[in-house]
Amino acid sequence: MAKKNNIGRRPTGTPRGGRRNAGNEGDQVRIEEDDTLVDIVEVRDQGLDFFERNRTIIIGAVIALIVLVAAALLYQTFIKAPAERNAAEQMQQAQYQFEQDSFSLALTNPGQGYPGFLDIADEYGNTKAGNLANYYAAVSYLNLGKYDAALDYLEDFDAEGELLPAMKAGVRGDLHSELDDFDAAIEDYEEAVEEAGDNYVTGGYYLNKLALLLRKEGRTDEALAAFERLKADFSLSNEATQADKYIATLR
């Protein structure tokens, strides 16, 4: 009596390689095809069984995902996008006063019924314009000599992109310098230069500030290295044109 083979197992005595008997070749091909078909059927049945056992959970998860995506689209279309536009429009008058160096007006009362940077940062804080209002407020307070308030608003400013991180670090350096915390200011200017990367305008501006502060603090070798780097790496910046005179006095 012929022995029955277990499903999915290779029958005993089936050739694995080398020479094949002509009579067994067709049987071997059919056995491999049957094994593949059995594997596919088993996988399909296991998948169906898993779905049946977890139908409620799976359907609930899919519905929840659809609801989340729809809610995100609705929020972006009907709430966030209009808020972004409104905040940008509301800030134009404050920006105008800022550009005129009217920092007090820019902060609280820019005129024509528009809000200042403080109100914009508070009311539209979750928008790009509201976030940028924190930076404007920090710089305004810096120019008004209110350094602690400036630091508070600067820390609330979320700097992203290629330019803003360098500007944030540079303004923090200015604030620490005004507060006579020169070690912290030096670290801030170093960070600003690093964040500036290949931007010769921003990089040269803050590297020059770093070099001047190092010179003021009597850190001659570091100041000389900073001025030499300014001339070599940021030669296109306005500040690089003054580097040679400082290099000559420091050598």
Rank of each mutant, 00 (worst) to 15 (best):
M1E: 13
A2Q: 12
N5D: 07
R10S: 08
P11D: 01
G13D: 07
G13R: 10
T14P: 01
G17M: 02
R19D: 01
G23M: 11
D27M: 14
E33K: 13
T36D: 14
L37P: 07
D39P: 07
D39N: 14
I40N: 15
R44T: 10
G47F: 11
R53P: 01
R55I: 03
T56R: 14
I58T: 08
I58E: 06
I59E: 03
G60E: 06
V62N: 08
A64L: 12
I66K: 06
V69C: 07
A72Q: 08
L73I: 12
Y75Q: 11
Q76L: 12
A81S: 15
P82N: 06
A87Y: 07
A88T: 14
Q90F: 06
Y96A: 10
Y96K: 14
Q97L: 13
S104P: 00
L105F: 13
N109G: 01
G111N: 02
P115K: 01
P115R: 00
Y124H: 09
T127E: 03
A129N: 04
N131D: 07
A133P: 03
A137Y: 07
S140W: 11
Y141G: 02
L142A: 11
N143Y: 08
G145H: 10
G145V: 11
D148K: 11
L154T: 03
F157C: 07
E162D: 12
L164N: 08
M167P: 03
A169V: 08
A169N: 10
G170T: 10
G170K: 09
R172K: 15
G173Q: 08
D180I: 06
D180N: 13
D183F: 05
Y189W: 04
E194M: 10
E195M: 12
N199R: 08
G203V: 01
Y205G: 02
Y206P: 00
Y206N: 06
L213N: 02
L214K: 04
G218L: 09
R219A: 06
E222W: 03
E222D: 10
L224T: 00
F227L: 02
L230R: 01
L236A: 12
A243I: 00
D244T: 05
Y246P: 00
I247R: 00
A248H: 04
T249Q: 11
L250G: 00
